[in-house]
Amino acid sequence: MFSNFSFVAISILFLAQTALPVVANNFSATVVSIGDGDTIRVRTGNKTVTVRLACIDAPETKQSPWGQQSLARLKQLLPVGQTITLRSTETDKYKRLVAEVFVGNRNVNVNMVEEGQAVVYRQYLKNCPESKDSLLQGENRAKQQRLAFWSQANPVMPWDFRHRITQKSTSQPTQGQQQSNCDLSYPDFCIPKNSSNLNCRDITQRRFKVLPPDPHGFDRDRDGIGCER
Results as ranks from 00 to 15, higher is better:
residue 23 V to G: 02
residue 12 I to P: 03
residue 13 L to K: 04
residue 197 N to S: 12
residue 113 V to D: 11
residue 216 H to I: 01
residue 37 G to L: 05
residue 172 Q to I: 03
residue 58 A to R: 08
residue 112 M to W: 02
residue 26 N to C: 06
residue 112 M to L: 15
residue 31 V to W: 10
residue 168 K to Y: 09
residue 159 W to T: 10
residue 42 V to S: 13
residue 144 Q to K: 15
residue 207 R to N: 15
residue 76 Q to C: 01
residue 126 K to D: 14
residue 17 Q to R: 13
residue 79 P to G: 14
residue 99 A to V: 04
residue 164 R to L: 09
residue 46 N to Q: 10
residue 35 G to H: 10
residue 201 R to Y: 09
residue 27 F to V: 06
residue 71 L to R: 14
residue 219 D to Q: 06
residue 116 G to D: 01
residue 120 V to I: 08
residue 13 L to R: 05
residue 214 D to Y: 04
residue 5 F to M: 09
residue 111 N to K: 11
residue 117 Q to H: 13
residue 56 I to V: 12
residue 133 D to Y: 00
residue 191 I to H: 00
residue 8 V to L: 15
residue 169 S to I: 00
residue 229 R to V: 04
residue 148 A to K: 09
residue 109 N to M: 05
residue 157 M to S: 13
residue 225 I to G: 01
residue 84 I to G: 09
residue 60 E to N: 05
residue 193 K to F: 00
residue 116 G to A: 04
residue 114 E to C: 03
residue 176 G to C: 08
residue 88 S to C: 03
residue 214 D to K: 07
residue 109 N to H: 07
residue 93 K to N: 13
residue 115 E to R: 14
residue 138 G to M: 04
residue 173 P to L: 06
residue 145 Q to W: 04
residue 125 L to A: 14
residue 224 G to V: 05
residue 65 P to V: 04
residue 99 A to Y: 05
residue 157 M to T: 08
residue 93 K to L: 14
residue 197 N to M: 10
residue 169 S to H: 12
residue 162 R to A: 14
residue 220 R to W: 00
residue 51 V to P: 08
residue 68 Q to L: 14
residue 92 D to N: 12
residue 65 P to T: 03
residue 66 W to L: 09
residue 153 A to H: 08
residue 175 Q to P: 03
residue 31 V to T: 07
residue 78 L to S: 11
residue 222 R to T: 05
residue 165 I to D: 01
residue 51 V to T: 09
residue 141 R to T: 08
residue 59 P to K: 11
residue 201 R to L: 12
